[in-house]
């Protein structure tokens, strides 16, 4: 009897979580129905975003995302290699570095925004620019990138390491020829997750990359990402709601694609990448 009640209670709880999500999807869809079209993706915005599409924002977003990954991926891989290859997992230094990473992951994104503004925009003199935004964003996704790459590297079988030592392989050869190829699927997942986190972020970019709606001419121009556009249209532009919702649909669509990619990569067994 108690078990049957629990069954019903569980279904109610599930509905409690799912209903708002369904409501969210339908609300976004309804709001954006009149606006969404291929033209929405290809036109530049006009009248502070009230008319036109989001082409300029897609370009700014791609620049910021690309730069962010160009910084975060190599640094993240280096740090993950340091954690997995140079330090034993239970050493003091590994524990300490793990703590630092947890702390970095817990720092509120608005604080990354404050830091990015002060350090990149003011101290380094980069101003409100794609470069400032991308650098601040790369610091924010760094812990996620490091943690997922480290996990992938630690998952490489112990036997491979023993074989490496038996053959007296050089470290560089081991890392380049065996470790990185073996860990590649896991690292790819880390990169995709970081890209998703970066795409979703708004608060970091508000006062680093800025608000400018134009297509950027260089890395030192300000540029607005999709997420900042959603915020600005919804909060500061009367009549901006339909296009805010349409932008949200595009952004969530992109994130769903990334999520499917992760699933696809993860299904592949680790050793396949070796061949």
């Amino acid at each position: 009897m108690a078990d049957r009640v629990a069954w019903l209670a569980g279904l109610v709880l599930l509905a409690l979580v799912m209903v708002p999500v369904v409501l969210m999807v339908t609300a976004l869809w309804q709001q954006s129905a009149d606006v969404l079209s291929a033209g929405f993706l290809l036109e530049d915005p006009g009248r502070a975003g009230r008319s036109g599409g989001i082409a300029a924002l897609l370009i700014s977003t791609a620049w910021i995302l690309g730069l962010c990954l160009m910084v975060a991926v190599p640094l993240g891989l280096g740090c993950a290699l340091y954690l997995s290859e140079s330090l034993p997992a239970d050493s003091r230094r590994a524990q300490w570095l793990g703590g630092v990473l947890d702390m970095l992951a817990a720092v509120p994104s608005i604080v990354y925004g404050l830091f990015g503004y002060q350090f990149f925009a003011i101290t380094l003199g980069l101003g409100f620019s794609i470069l400032s935004g991308a650098l601040a964003l790369s610091l924010m996704v760094l812990p996620l990138m490091i943690r997922s790459a480290e996990q992938a590297m630690r998952a490489v079988p112990m036997g491979y390491r023993q074989a490496r030592d038996a053959l007296a392989l050089s470290r560089w050869g081991w890392v380049r020829r065996i470790l990185l190829p073996c860990a590649a699927p896991g690292i790819a997942v880390g990169i995709i997750l970081s890209a998703g986190r970066a795409l979703a972020e708004t608060a970091v970019l508000l006062f680093t990359a800025g608000y400018v709606l134009r297509r950027p001419d260089s890395l030192f121009d300000s540029g607005r990402t999709l997420s900042v556009h959603i915020y600005d249209l919804a909060m500061n532009v009367p009549g901006g709601m339909p296009r805010a919702a349409a932008t949200a649909v595009v952004l969530v669509g992109l994130l769903v694609i990334l999520n499917l990619l992760v699933r696809r990569v993860l299904r592949q067994p680790m050793t396949e990448a070796l061949v």
Partner: peptide, 19 residues
């Protein structure tokens, strides 16, 4: 639920404003 966790906070905020 993993998909839900990846939805940007601005989108949750937008839903809050709309609904």
């Amino acid at each position: 639920v993993e998909l839900m966790a990846g939805i940007p906070s601005v989108v949750y905020g937008l839903w809050g404003m709309l609904v």
